[in-house]
Design a binder for these strands. Sequence first.
RNA 1: UGGGGAUUCGCCAAGUGGUAAGGCAUCACGUUUUGGUCGUGACAUUCACAGGUUCGAAUCCUGUAUCCCCAUCCA
Length: 752
Amino acid sequence: MSEGKDFLRTIVKEDLEAKKYKTVVTRFPPEPNGFPHIGHAKSISINFGIARAFGGHCNLRMDDTNPTTEDMRFVEALKDAVTWLGYTWGENLFFASDYFPKLYEYAIKLIKLGKAYVDSASEEQIRQLRGTVTQSGTRSKYATRSIEENLNLFERMKNGEFKDGEHVLRAKIDMSAANMKMRDPLIYRIRHAHHFRTGDTWCVYPMYDFAHCLSDFIEGITHSICTLEFENNRELYDWVLDTLEPEKTRPYQYEFARLNINYTVMSKRKLLELVNGCFVNGWDDPRLPTIAGYKRRGYTPEAILNFCEQIGIAKANSMVDVAQLEFCIRDDLNQKVPRVMCVLDPLKVTIENFDSNKTEEIEASYYPHDVAKEGYRKLPFSKEIYIERDDFMENPPQGYYRLTPNQSVRLKHAYIITCKQIIKDANGKIVEIKVQYHSDSKSGDDTSGIKVKSAIHWVSGRHAKKAEIRLYERLYKTDTPEGLEDLNPDSLRIIKNALIEPAAIDEKPDERFQFERQGYFYADPIDYTSEHPIFNKIVGLKDSWAKKTETKKPATKPTQTKKVVIEGKADPMSETELTLFSRYTNELGLNHEIANILARDTQLSNFFEEALSVLHSPISLANIITNEVAREFKTNETIQITPNQVAQLVKMVDDETISNKIAKQVFEEMLDSKASPDAIVQKKGLAQISDPTIIIPLIDEVIANNPDNVAKFKAGNTKLVGFFIGQVLKMTDGKANPSVLNELVSKKLNTQ
RNA sequence: UGGGGAUUCGCCAAGUGGUAAGGCAUCACGUUUUGGUCGUGACAUUCACAGGUUCGAAUCCUGUAUCCCCAUCCA
């Protein structure tokens, strides 16, 4: 939870430090039209997490501006998700629909400002007139209506005098804007629909772009964090707030990349399709990436939150490996849950030399030695037991550690057994094995001296309980699933007759267990009863044996195809550009790259020509202009610096008063202070230090203080020269002459 | 095709002119009564590509490529 670990926290931190806001206020603003999924969890952890980290607060706001898709049921699911993840909104549960009256007033204000109009064109016409991404649009003929007429019409829209789609309210912005969102966006539409909260009060409903920013403003949000697809909406967000509330401090929008996970679908539409089409069993199906699904499956909020923290926040579209999530739940449960034995695919084992009437009770710890928890149960041991079918092999492959005709094995917590006889049915399937146990090999008290390769889990036939185990695998078989055709047909496997040791049911020391050697399981919160226990598989244990045996087969190496880069062609130069180019290269001796940049950019070439008339130092001038000056022109239309000033600066570099490095620093300074370069150098004492008698002692000092790096350098890490130069430069505030310094450092290090 | 974003290891991701963090995955060894956990080590001479500026570039400049978003009366 550190403060500056991602770009959002960095922004918040800076804003707070700059006193832009007194306290940070964020919001989690879902639309209640579907169940929240792990992508929402990321957003929740960002918004609530930032608020918590900076001592602010986060509102839970239902963005319910579309009456046709939203439902109270989803509101409850959203609240559940936030609570389950461990966050609280306190008093701050809001609904955009609560702001409908205020929003309506804002719309009227916009009309009065002459910045909104009622458009009576049809939906189709509006689309036509909007233009395309390359062609600008045309403003509707209704845009010329008077303020009074607009006011009147809008009020009648509100009063329900018109049918759906007859009119809309539009912001009057710019029909030729390159950003399509700014082409007179719709801000209100007529909807004669029943809203789940406001009922039939309203006939007009605000659109997202109008409602969202104003809702943020009304709530005093400082940082409005949303996903990347809203980047284009930001300009409109700013426009609405700047024209309606120009004086007040207001929220700003920031975007991050939404979460994608491989083998998983996250879109509301696809999730809805799965649920409604009964491809899964409801919104809380454990195979679904919904919060309800993870909860039902047995995931912990800690694991989800930890996952959200691990994946980070950035602006690049990305696809997280589902293995990362699986790691998080294993990692969490490993420290928490009791171990218990459960046989999923039982094979009967009769211990020939064990008394058939006897039951031995073994004290077995619920936790392994490396988990700092205590607790144990009594484990019954008797003549007939069951082991996992694949823990015995008649003809084992190399490296198989478990029971074979020639290899003894330990029964976990109990005795070592040795196979004596294999019994098969008519089809050759093994139905039972007969073994002898070594009575002097009891766990914790073993004097047998027998060495075994592994310990396997087992249950006592007489005492074991029957359990239903629901085994879940990934819902999709492809890593980037598109549709139903990518569904994994084996995503759910139900084992009706697994055998579990009695304590797990009778004592029920927890809801979640590790079934020894298999994975983590969760007593299904809905269907489980002690008469008919049902466990969901949360996640399997890592299984390096399985991995080893399967990777043996396909050894096909993916052929590395070297990426072929197609170099696009630059536009040919115009006549005048060509003339300039040849003058720069031939007369002034500039290199082709620099000459090219200058020749193609009139702003830069004018600047250059002017500077050149002051100081005839074409190469130095051209370098600084195509690099530093160009950057400023890129971000600002006009810049404060004059060609004359740049010439002054270059002059100081040319006569070695200052270094190139310092020149860049001075340049930055000139941008802010508008002072002349000489004055800056004077004032700050930036003249460069070239005298070796001053520099050498500093180098010696750095070398003396960093013996490790000296050693690394000697070992061949020559890049470390940079480190030493950097250190000396730091000591001299960047004033040491870098060329001289470079030479001296290299010499010193090589003669040490 | 206009505009807006992005590009650092198999997957995430720090880094903003001075030694390419960290996690997942993978591999090896050690510990282990879970083929788990844990521990140790290995894993980017290079940051989409090509030039340029600089003593020094992932970072600054120019150009190119690729991917994502925008033309719902959805959010």
